[in-house]
Design a protein around this nucleic acid. Structure first.
Lengths: 141, 141
DNA sequence: TATTGTTATACTCTATAACTATA
DNA sequence: TATAGTTATAGAGTATAACAATA
C-alpha cells in the first residue's frame, strides 16, 4: 500500500500546489474575488487577449470561459471589445478598476508567498527558481 | 506596472501550482473523478478520518465537505461509520473500490509529475524535494 | 468547411447561516 | 455552552453538446 507520504518529490509538489492555491484563494477573498477570477485578472495584466487564447492559457473550455468573463465583466473589471477585422472574435481587456484590483491581488499573492519562502537562503531561492522555470518551460514546449 | 512575468520565485510557484492542478484534474478525469474527489480519496489513503479533520486538511468548510463526501459515498467509494463513543461524529473511510481507485489515481498523478520532472538531475531533485518539504513544514507549524 | 464565441443544460464545488443532536 | 455534523440556499465553476455568425 502506497500512502500519500511515501512518494517523495511528486507528492511534495502536490502539497505545495494546494498550499499555493490556498494562498491564492485567500488573496482573492479579501477582494471578494474567487481564485479563478484572480487568475483571469492576472493573466490579463499581460495585455488584452482573445477568448481562445485565454481558454488555452487557463486550461478551460471556451464555454466555461464565457461565464467567467461574463461574471467579471458584470462587475466592471474587464471589457469585451470587438475586432472589426474578424467579426467573430472579441478581445478581453482589463478596465481601470480591473487593472487596479488585478495588481493589488497579484502583489498580495506575491507577498504571502514571499513570507512562506522568506527563510530560504539566497542560493536555495535561485536554485528553486531556475528548477521550477525549467519544469514550466519543458511543459510549454 | 508589474506584470505576471516579473515576479520571480513567487510567480514561478503560482504557475507550477496551476500545472500540478491540471495534472491532478487529468488523472481524475480518466476515472470520472473531479480534482476535489481525487484529493479527498488521496487524503483517505492515510486512513479513516472524521469530518472535522478532513475539513481542516482540505481547507474546506464542514458544509462543503458534507456534499463532497455525500457524492462520493453515493458512488460507493467511501463509507461513513458512526462512533458509539461520541454519537455526534462519524468516520469516513475508503471502501475496497475506493481504495483501488484512490491508489490508481495517486499512481497516475505521480507518474505524470515524474514525467514532467524526469529531466532534472538527481542533485536538483534532492534539492527541490528538501526545499519544498521545508516550505510545507514551516507552513504547518 | 473551419473557426470564434455563445447558449442550453446538468452537475460539482463552495461559503454562509441556521439547524439538530450530542457532549 | 460548546462541538460534530447536516440542511437550506445561493452563487460560482466546469464540461458537453448544439448553435450562430463569420472566415
Amino acid at each position: 500500500m502506497t500512502t500519500i507520504e511515501e512518494t517523495g518529490l511528486a507528492e511534495a509538489l502536490v502539497r505545495l500546489s494546494h498550499l499555493v492555491q490556498h494562498v491564492f484563494a485567500e488573496a482573492g477573498r479579501a477582494r471578494d474575488l474567487t481564485p479563478q477570477q484572480v487568475r483571469l485578472l492576472c493573466v490579463l495584466t499581460r495585455g488584452p487577449a482573445r477568448m481562445t487564447g485565454l481558454s488555452r492559457s487557463l486550461h478551460l473550455e471556451k464555454s466555461s470561459l464565457t461565464g467567467l468573463v461574463d461574471r467579471i465583466e458584470r462587475r466592471g473589471l474587464v471589457e469585451r471589445t470587438f475586432d472589426a477585422r474578424d467579426r467573430r472574435s472579441c478581445q478581453v481587456a482589463l478596465t481601470g478598476a480591473g487593472a487596479e484590483l488585478a495588481h493589488a491581488a497579484h502583489r498580495d499573492v506575491t507577498a504571502r508567498l514571499e513570507k512562506l519562502i522568506g527563510d530560504l537562503r539566497q542560493a536555495d531561492r535561485t536554485r528553486l527558481t531556475s528548477v521550477v522555470t525549467g519544469i514550466l518551460a519543458a511543459e510549454e514546449s
